[in-house]
Simulated scan of single mutants.
Amino acid sequence: MAVPGSAVDSLHAALKSNIIPNQEYLLQGSVLDQYVEVLLHRLRGLCDNVDAGPESFHDQELCFTLRGNTPAVATMVLPLRVRRALDVTDAPWQLRYVGQHELGDKNRPTVVRSSIDMACSSTVVEFLTELGCRIDFEYISRGYMFRKGRMKITVSKVFKKIGDTNVEAISQSYLVELSVLAPSNQDAVAEEMRIFAEQLRPLVQLEKIDYKRLGNMP
C-alpha cells in the first residue's frame, strides 16, 4: 500500500498544478462621504447579492513585519496582517501574507500581488510577537462587501484608534477596493475587473496604484 505524501508535498503539488489562489488582482479608489450612498445604490444594482443586500463588516487589522536578525538577511522584511471581526465574536481570526505590488506591463489593467490567507486562533498575535514580529500600525475598517462573480468589492471607512476605546476617521472619504484572488497567470481576471470598474465611473475611479512612486513624492 502506498504511503500518503506529507502535507508539504501536497501543497507543492497543488502549487505546481496552479490550483491554489495565491495572487490578488487589485484596483483601488475612494469616494467622498457625501456620495457613498449613491455608490452603494449603484453596486446594489450591479452585483449578485441584490436581494440579500451587501454584507456589512467591522474589522480590526494589525500590520506586522518580521525583519531578518542576521547581517545576511537584515534587509529582508516579511509583511504579515492579522484581521479580526469586531462584530462577530466567534469568527476565526485571519492571518494574511501580502507581497509587494507587481505593476508589470503598463497595459495590465490591475496591480497583481502575492497573497496567502489562513484562518487562525486569537493567539496568533502572541505567536507572531514571540517570533519577533513587530506591529507597524493598526486600523479599524467598517463598511460593506459586495460580490460580482469571483470579484469582491468593498466600500469601507477607515479609522485610527485613539486610546483603547475611541476611534477617529482618517479622512472624509471611503476606501473602495475591487479584488479577485486567483491562481497564478490568470490575467483574464484583470480585464473582467477593468470592465466592471468602468461601470462605476464617474462616482469612483478605480485604478492600479504605484505605492513606490507615491513614497518618492516630495
Rank of each mutant, 00 (worst) to 15 (best):
A2Q: 14
A2K: 14
V3W: 07
P4M: 12
S6F: 06
A7E: 15
V8Y: 13
L15G: 02
L15D: 01
L15V: 07
K16A: 15
S17P: 03
S17H: 07
I20R: 11
I20S: 05
P21Q: 05
N22M: 12
Q23G: 00
L27I: 14
Q28H: 01
S30W: 09
D33V: 15
D33Y: 06
Q34R: 15
E37A: 07
L40Y: 01
R42N: 07
D51S: 10
D51G: 06
G53F: 11
E55I: 14
S56E: 13
F57S: 00
H58S: 09
H58F: 14
D59A: 08
Q60P: 05
Q60I: 13
L62V: 14
L62G: 02
F64M: 06
F64S: 11
T65R: 15
T65M: 13
R67I: 06
G68Q: 08
A72D: 12
V73H: 10
T75M: 11
L78C: 15
D87S: 13
T89C: 09
D90K: 10
L95C: 10
R96F: 02
R96C: 15
V98G: 12
G99I: 05
Q100M: 14
E102I: 07
D105V: 03
D105C: 07
D105A: 11
N107I: 03
V112C: 09
S115K: 13
A119N: 13
C120N: 01
T123C: 03
L128I: 11
E130S: 10
E130H: 11
G132I: 02
I135T: 14
D136S: 12
E138I: 06
E138M: 14
Y139T: 00
Y139G: 04
R142H: 11
G143L: 03
Y144E: 14
R147G: 03
G149K: 13
I153G: 04
S156L: 00
S156C: 10
K157V: 01
K157M: 06
K157W: 04
K157Y: 00
V158M: 04
V158C: 03
K160D: 12
T165C: 07
T165G: 03
N166I: 03
E168A: 04
E168V: 04
I170P: 01
I170K: 03
S171P: 02
S171R: 11
S173L: 01
L175K: 11
E177V: 08
L178H: 03
L178C: 04
S179E: 07
S179L: 10
V180I: 12
V180W: 05
A182C: 00
A182I: 01
A182G: 02
D187S: 02
V189C: 01
E191P: 01
E192G: 10
E192N: 14
R194A: 13
I195V: 15
I195T: 12
F196W: 05
A197P: 09
P202N: 12
P202V: 07
I209M: 10
D210S: 02
L214E: 10
N216P: 00
P218N: 06
